[in-house]
């Protein structure tokens, strides 16, 4: 007896669904529900419908400042990690001729990923601090006469920490898609008289687009959902949407936090949707 194909498929994904439904779908349903209910101000949620939470979210100038600051960090991190990730991957795939060496160097880039992110973030403190290494060296060389203040606990430090943590999420997928480019295509283009700029523009960038898209999804979703790096590295000077959400939760304001969360999830999904429009991610992964 042969079972219908879709039934077999659903049978195989049933364990996955058994996790995703209670730990992704239902929590989202709960948050959406909580966002239109009234809170009693003591962590309880009362079963009365209200749109006040959303009115508060959209009516507050703070919301726009938070989104402005979070999206600013997201764009800066995305741009820097994409540029660095692209060129590092390009160097490894097209400039390092020895394949074993290329894989070795690739592993060198991925190793820090296996260590704690929080630790990697605080490891900037002895470097960027007021009495940190960078300031010590610059002062020692006589380039500056008093320590640079903007290095730590500033927006600069936040972006440095993000790029430091997340560039790897760009390098891995871009390296993967570049490694699958047939070198003969490049050779053929050279034979046909293409310049190296043309090769970059017409072959390498289009064929590594899927890697860039995948990397962008990771970077954008992580930065949009972060509150830890912003909080520690800005020294409290900057906030993010999720940091504000966390404040609401700490004072047990669940419904307003839920409304904020729904808006944030929609914004993130919109951004990811835009990235997914540029490339058929499913086909590209299977390629």
């Amino acid at each position: 007896m042969r079972l219908p194909r879709s039934l077999v498929g659903w049978f195989y994904v049933s364990p996955l669904m058994l996790v995703l439904i209670p730990f992704f779908v239902l929590p989202m349903v709960v948050i959406i529900t909580a966002s239109v209910l009234e809170g009693d101000g003591f962590g309880g949620i009362m079963p009365f419908f209200t749109t006040q939470n959303y009115i508060d979210v959209f009516g507050s100038g703070l919301t726009f400042n938070l989104y402005f600051s979070t999206i600013k960090f997201t764009i800066l991190t995305w741009v820097f990690s994409l540029i660095i990730g692209f060129w590092v991957a390009y160097f490894l795939v097209f400039h390092v001729k020895n394949q074993l060496l290329a894989i070795g160097l690739f592993l060198v880039c991925t190793v820090p990923f296996w260590t704690s992110n929080i630790i990697r973030m605080i490891s900037w403190i002895p470097l960027l601090g007021k009495e940190g290494l960078v300031n010590m060296i610059l002062q020692g060389l006589g380039i500056i006469d008093k320590p640079l203040e903007f290095l730590l606990f500033s927006d600069f430090a936040v972006v440095v920490a993000y790029v430091h943590q997340l560039t790897i999420f760009m390098i891995v997928p871009i390296f993967n898609s570049m490694a699958r480019i047939d070198k003969r295509v490049v050779e053929a283009a050279l034979d046909a008289g293409a310049s190296r700029f043309d090769i970059m523009r017409y072959i390498i960038v289009p064929l590594s687009k899927s890697g860039m898209a995948l990397g962008s999804i990771f970077v954008v979703s992580i930065v949009m959902g972060d509150f830890f790096v912003v909080r520690v590295m800005s020294g409290g000077g900057s906030a993010s949407v999720v940091a504000a959400l966390y404040e609401d939760i700490s004072v047990l304001q669940y419904p307003p936090a839920a409304a904020n969360a729904v808006v944030l999830v929609l914004v993130v999904m919109l951004m990811i949707g835009l990235i997914l429009r540029t490339v058929d991610i499913r086909r590209e992964i299977a390629r």
Binding site: M17, V25, P27, V30, I31, S221, G225, V242, L245, R282
Partner: peptide, 23 residues
Amino acid sequence: VFYLMIGSLVAPGLVLGIGVGLL
């Protein structure tokens, strides 16, 4: 299933945690 997975992957961690907590 595929897009559910993508959704679960990109959902902000703290939001998901709050949802699970409330559930």
